Computed example of a mutant assay.
Amino acid sequence: MLMNSGEKAATLIYGPNGFRVVKPGHFVTCAATGEPIALEELRYWSVERQEPYATPEAATRRLLDLA
């Protein structure tokens, strides 16, 4: 996904059923891959680690890396 250079990163608090925007922005950065994730495409995150993930595979990779 290409991000416009004028778009800013958001700060979120991740909960078990959704997330809350603390600082408005257009995207967050995947904790496993470093790629930007548009907020409307964000589906995977860790409540415990408060991290977003681009894909289920990225979430699994991050979990295994931290184990």
Rank of each mutant, 00 (worst) to 15 (best):
F27M: 04
L63N: 13
L64Y: 09
V47K: 10
E51T: 13
I37E: 05
F27N: 00
Y44A: 05
L64G: 02
T29E: 05
Y44D: 09
T33D: 09
R49F: 08
P24M: 05
S5M: 10
I13E: 14
E51N: 12
R62S: 13
T11D: 13
P56V: 12
A32G: 08
P36E: 01
R43W: 03
Y44W: 12
A38F: 07
F19A: 00
F27D: 03
E51I: 08
E41C: 04
K8Y: 03
T55L: 03
Y53R: 04
I13R: 15
N4C: 05
P52K: 03
M3L: 13
H26Y: 08
V22R: 10
V21T: 14
G25R: 01
A31Y: 06
P36D: 08
L42K: 04
S5W: 06
A67E: 13
G15L: 05
A59C: 12
A10P: 01
L39V: 10
P56T: 08
G34A: 07
L39Y: 02
A59Q: 15
T55H: 08
G6A: 12
T33I: 03
Q50S: 04
L63V: 11
F19T: 03
K23T: 15
R62P: 00
R20E: 15
R43S: 10
T33Q: 06
C30K: 07
N17Q: 14
Y53C: 01
A31D: 08
E7N: 11
L66E: 12
R43E: 11
L2D: 13
